[in-house]
Design a binder for these strands. Structure first.
Length: 162
DNA sequence: AGATTGAGCGGCA
DNA sequence: TGCCGCTCAATCT
């Protein structure tokens, strides 16, 4: 399903009441490149609430750890991918880790880590945008501009806490 | 079952 | 700086 909030569209797939996949908030001309479904006019509160949290994550208005406590989600991925994403969950709001760091920790290669992140079904909720390359931003399925946007907002938010 | 493909990295000139 | 070789899970063919 796709839910619209203001001029952002958030794609979500639920199995029962559990979120198994989502997109980051996108404008109308972008969303259908990533998910096919129809925009729900009057979404049930349960679904709307999840979409609102994803929107807040995008604008760095909520901590992802808090979001994971609230959202009823299920991570359906292969074993290796799960190991990578479990490491990513521990990356603090406002900081970053490199592909190489994760690879070293799991005794694998940075390329393999990138592959796993590329298929993160729960972007923002599992903060794969905080994984960068050693000497650059690395990549991001939804476009590097989006990754840059979220990271910059998280960085500023963290600074303003002092 | 084998080949190809990356959201990477380190070394060497 | 720029290129080359290594890497390895996932995705083709």
């Amino acid at each position: 399903m796709i839910i619209q909030i203001d001029d952002y569209f958030i794609g979500m797939i639920f199995k029962g009441n559990q979120l198994v996949r989502n997109t980051i908030p996108l404008k109308s001309d972008e969303i259908f490149k990533f998910i096919n479904g129809k925009v729900i006019d009057n979404p049930e509160d349960e679904y709307l609430k999840v979409a609102e949290i994803i929107l807040k994550l995008y604008f760095a208005e909520i901590d992802d750890k808090k979001a994971r406590e609230i959202i009823n989600y299920k991570l359906e991925v292969p074993a290796f991918t799960k190991k990578v994403l479990d490491v990513v969950k521990d990356v603090e709001f406002g900081s970053v880790i490199t592909y190489g760091d994760i690879a070293k920790k799991l005794n694998t290669s940075p390329r393999a880590v990138g592959m796993a992140l590329k298929r993160n079904p729960l972007p923002l909720i599992i903060p794969c945008h905080r994984v960068v390359a050693k000497n650059s931003l690395g990549g991001y399925s939804y476009g590097l501009d989006k990754k840059k946007f979220v990271l910059e907002r998280e960085r500023l938010k963290k600074l303003s806490r002092y």
